[in-house]
Amino acid sequence: MAALRSIAARIGLLPDDEGGPPIVPPSGWSAWLTTLTAGAMAFLALLTIAAGLAAGGLAEDWRADLAEAATLRLPAGTDAATVAQVVDLLRATPGIASSRPLDAAEQAALLEPWLGRGAALDDLPLPVMIDLRVLGTGPDVAALEANLGLTAPGAVYDDHAGVRAPLGRAAEEVRRLALAGTLLVIVAAASMVALAARASLAANSELVRIIRLIGGEDAFITRAFVGRVVRRTALGALAGAALGAAALAALPAGGAAAALAPVLLPGAEGLAALAAAVALGLVAVGWAAARITLRVTLREME
């Protein structure tokens, strides 16, 4: 515990109060802008990451569902005996778990969005559809179609690649957007902390001069100022991440996203872990940004 405290003090998370009052003077209400901004950043980062994870995950789910399904289409007018033969053949094909011809009602349901309810489907030359569940990477399509050539000429195997690929790309794009959003939040947080650290040093240039003159090291000054900025950032980041997690957790209670919430959101533990990671990440970014800025600025103040 003592070791933890001393590490926390060294990186500025806890004030180093062993030796007396804070080195950096209290700086009034404007310093709380750092906390406020850090809070907003944490909130945004959490939402961006959660949205990215959720949208990416959703597209991934759909793609995975589709990857397990395939359709075999036989030309219109194929008779029932041939269909039965084809089903037998499919049963013996490696890579296919099961097959099931769609009945007329199911076909009607599929076509309803295009043709309207109660369309006279009997008059239309509809292909026979066989719904397939595939295993792993699916069957060897060329061999399957060659086999089918004799039994049911014109049979077409459709693995939904045409639909799957765009979904995969969509998932990828959403993920990339979320990553870009997160990186932007990191850059913004680092800039905000750097500005705050610089302003704080500029407002206390006389203090810096005196400390140097009476034998203080720049490392001591850096620690004192980093501590001030990092503690404010940490406070804001924790509050912002907690609020963000609470907002996300409250989604299922109402609103348009409610229906999707169970798919979209990690569980309560997942959310808590995500919020903690966001807060911790922001503190780390703030700490590094403050340190670098202070060192550079102190060197300029030589």
Binding site: E18, G19, G20, I211, I214, G215, G216, E217, F220
Partner: peptide
């Protein structure tokens, strides 16, 4: 008055 001690890392 105590600050130089603190700056030199001498325990208060």
């Amino acid at each position: 008055i105590a600050l130089p001690l603190r700056l030199q890392g001498k325990p208060m």
